[in-house]
Design a protein around this nucleic acid. Sequence first.
DNA 1: GGGACCCTTCGACGCGCGGCGAAATGTCGG
DNA 2: CCGACATTTCGCCGCGCGTCGAAGGGTCCC
Lengths: 235, 235
Amino acid sequence: MEYIARDADIAPVAALIADPTRAAILTALLGGRALAAGELARMAGVSPATASAHLSRLLDGRLVDVVRQGRHRYYRLAGHEVAEVLEVLAGISARPPVRSLRQSRQARLLEEARTCYDHLAGKAGVGLLDRLREGGYYTGHDLTEVGERLLSGLGVDVAGARGSRRRFAPECLDWTERRAHLGGALGAAVTEVLFERGWYRRGNVPRAVVLTDEGREGLAKLFSGKELTSVTPVT
Amino acid sequence: MEYIARDADIAPVAALIADPTRAAILTALLGGRALAAGELARMAGVSPATASAHLSRLLDGRLVDVVRQGRHRYYRLAGHEVAEVLEVLAGISARPPVRSLRQSRQARLLEEARTCYDHLAGKAGVGLLDRLREGGYYTGHDLTEVGERLLSGLGVDVAGARGSRRRFAPECLDWTERRAHLGGALGAAVTEVLFERGWYRRGNVPRAVVLTDEGREGLAKLFSGKELTSVTPVT
DNA sequence: GGGACCCTTCGACGCGCGGCGAAATGTCGG
DNA sequence: CCGACATTTCGCCGCGCGTCGAAGGGTCCC
């Protein structure tokens, strides 16, 4: 019984991620924002020509989308499935040694609060899910009735999220915390509202987000006094 | 604000998966069984020397483990995290075109029932989770009380699975069915019992498993008459 | 101990791919 | 229409890596 391996062809996709420069580009795009080709080249530390070649290959492999706007071309991940692959991969990859003070500060910022493509991750994301569970708003893989009321009251389009083709409210394993945060359609909808309300805003470091004063207050009121993140601010 | 990408280093791990031969080896090991270096070489369609080189690199990268037994060396995936990466990757990878009758038969066998590293997947896996949900044995991300009784009665070590460091009963997205099957520690424990009881046995094609007559009967009794898999057997 | 078998190491070959600078294409503002 | 800027295309170089056959350890059995 000769058998030739004929499963899904994972090698080509893996090859796209395998190059350090492309990996840097994809990781930068994990922030969820679309970035211009030039910015990506700078972030990855290569010439515009090189970055362009990589982006064209990523486009070919359907890992990224492009939207043309004037003389800029903004690239973004092709979908949440791609983001999931990157996150899972990060989970079994070595974390690089910290070489400088600035790097360690950036690392701490990312551990504190970041976006995982389109939803909140890091200590903040894990904390949010914990509060939702403790308050009886979330159980198993779904919102409870009170939870649905709580989030709807906040402005989250729960019905819309439920109707999406994407999984509603799965737990997403957080690779810095090694614990779950809220992912899926609901995670994205909640995060959208957090930004709209100005409770979180994007930081200078690509994927990082920071809790604002309004956010601290709003969340404290929502969950009656429990902090979402650690007490000491990252300086 | 210069920023140098400094997340987890996903490129090296991706590079290990990126080679077609190594991908074939890893995919073969997704069956959950440890396989000898020679078998892997044959399956990947490559000389023993080449396979050996690849296996040594996979070993280095901690994607596989090896256990020496006499003159054989049996390789297996290093853990369920590795299996998860491969499954997620398969989800966004193109399925290769079917070229022969034998291949299409193998493909159908895998769609019907296979192992996803250490738990049941394919139509059989998805069906099992559906029955558990329909019967009120499983809800959200956990077993109900009746569900715990049902599985314990079958011989599943539910308490042991709950105590494991691994997630207890997550839904695992099935890349052929695009729906969830039972994964995690509980998924593995249930699958172990299914094999022990002889309800399923491993097929000739690497990751495939087949429902036995005892299995058909036992599961029908368990879920009062509902078939786990499609009606027509794969010939 | 000898021979069969499994697996790895060694040495050599060739191709694919990532890198860049320079030039071409495209877009905006005047 | 022209100069500044963003991005891509082109041509070229260099090296890393996958491949194999042959040879070298190990292990088993007679």
